Simulated assay, not measured.
Amino acid sequence: MSHENKFKQQVRRLYHKLIIAFGLIGIAVFAFIYVALNPSILHNKPEETEIIAIPQVEGKIENGIHMETGFVDEEGLAEVIQNCTNCHSAKLVTQNRMTKEGWIATIRWMQETQNLWDLGNQEEAIVNYLAINYAPQKKGRREVLTNVEWYSLKD
């Protein structure tokens, strides 16, 4: 092999090493800047999150009913509208009647299977609203018949 070919090979190797070195330096600089802008990642704790206030209930309320959703206008209405009607109709809520435990179990099921987010400190207000306003009713579609004289039909 000639001197010229050996020299070209050495230059190529040096060139590749320089490319790798500059690439690693670039990655290190990027990582340094990222850590400088996000110091909380070094402490393995999440950044403080901003608490967002619940908006006031929008829409017309007549005779204690929120007209757009059909929900009862009571404390917790805004939280229920904000969290429940994002994914499904208000009718799905109003047609169901459950105890507090039933509503909590339904929320857990939605969180485990339907990607419902963590309700955080709003969960208590939501569950209380639902348990009070959409609790099981003791009577069915009609009152139980009492004091009825039954008779037999004749052929």
Rank of each mutant, 00 (worst) to 15 (best):
T49L: 09
F32L: 04
A105E: 09
N83F: 12
Q56R: 10
N133Q: 08
I54P: 07
M67W: 03
E50T: 05
E74C: 03
H88R: 12
V127D: 01
Y34D: 00
E47C: 08
T106V: 06
D73I: 08
D73H: 15
D118L: 07
Q137W: 11
V35P: 08
T113M: 01
Q137K: 15
P136C: 04
A125K: 14
Q114L: 02
L119K: 04
E123S: 06
H88T: 03
Q111N: 05
G59A: 00
A125E: 10
L37Q: 14
N38H: 15
Q95E: 14
I104G: 00
Q82W: 09
G70F: 12
T106G: 09
A36V: 15
A105W: 06
G120Q: 06
E62I: 12
Q122F: 05
F32N: 01
R97F: 09
G102E: 04
N38A: 01
V72S: 07
H43L: 15
I54C: 00
I51P: 06
H66K: 07
Q82G: 02
L42Y: 14
Q122D: 05
S89L: 15
T99E: 04
E124T: 12
Q82R: 07
A36T: 15
Q114V: 01
M67L: 12
H43S: 15
D73K: 15
I132V: 10
K45G: 07
N121V: 01
I107G: 01
Q137S: 08
W103F: 02
H66S: 04
V127N: 04
A36C: 10
A105C: 07
V72T: 14
Q56D: 06
T99P: 12
T106Y: 09
K138H: 01
